[in-house]
Simulated assay, not measured.
Amino acid sequence: METTYAVLSEGLCKRYGEVHALRGLDLAVPAGTVCGLLGPNGAGKTTAVRILTTLGAPDSGTARVAGHDVVRDPRAVRGRIAVTGQDGSVDADLTGRENLRLFARLQRLRGVAATKRADALLERFELTEAADRPARTYSGGMRRRLDLAACLLTAPEVLFLDEPTTGLDPRSRGGIWDSVRELARAGTTVLLTTQYLEEADRLADDIVVIDRGRTVATGTPEELKTTIGQHIEVVVADAEAVTGAAVVLGNLTGSAPELDAEHRTVGAASGDPALTLPRVVRELDAAGVPLVDASVRRPTLDEVFLRLTHGATNAETTAPEEATV
Results as ranks from 00 to 15, higher is better:
residue 28 A to E: 06
residue 168 L to F: 12
residue 315 A to D: 11
residue 12 L to I: 12
residue 92 A to P: 12
residue 114 A to K: 05
residue 259 L to I: 13
residue 90 V to P: 05
residue 185 R to S: 13
residue 223 E to D: 14
residue 230 Q to V: 04
residue 263 H to F: 15
residue 162 D to V: 06
residue 78 R to S: 11
residue 183 L to V: 02
residue 304 V to F: 06
residue 59 D to P: 15
residue 103 F to E: 07
residue 221 P to Y: 05
residue 4 T to L: 13
residue 24 G to Y: 00
residue 279 R to A: 14
residue 315 A to H: 12
residue 257 P to Y: 13
residue 108 R to C: 13
residue 24 G to K: 04
residue 48 A to W: 00
residue 16 Y to T: 06
residue 99 N to M: 04
residue 171 R to W: 00
residue 300 T to G: 13
residue 308 L to N: 11
residue 293 D to S: 15
residue 125 F to I: 14
residue 237 A to C: 03
residue 98 E to D: 14
residue 253 T to S: 10
residue 187 G to I: 11
residue 89 S to V: 13
residue 55 L to V: 11
residue 118 A to K: 09
residue 184 A to M: 06
residue 228 I to A: 02
residue 116 K to L: 15
residue 135 A to W: 09
residue 297 R to C: 06
residue 56 G to T: 06
residue 192 L to K: 03
residue 233 E to N: 05
residue 18 E to R: 15
residue 87 D to I: 02
residue 58 P to Q: 04
residue 232 I to W: 01
residue 262 E to T: 14
residue 67 G to N: 08
residue 292 V to C: 12
residue 313 T to K: 03
residue 27 L to D: 08
residue 14 K to G: 00
residue 116 K to Y: 01
residue 289 V to H: 05
residue 305 F to P: 09
residue 227 T to G: 03
residue 297 R to Y: 00
residue 53 T to M: 10
residue 249 L to H: 08
residue 183 L to N: 08
residue 139 S to A: 05
residue 77 V to I: 06
residue 164 P to N: 08
residue 120 A to P: 06
residue 33 T to F: 01
residue 130 A to I: 09
residue 10 E to K: 14
residue 225 K to E: 08
residue 85 G to W: 00
residue 194 T to W: 04
residue 226 T to N: 01
residue 141 G to K: 04
residue 18 E to D: 14
residue 12 L to P: 07
residue 307 R to F: 01
residue 124 R to H: 10
residue 261 A to M: 02
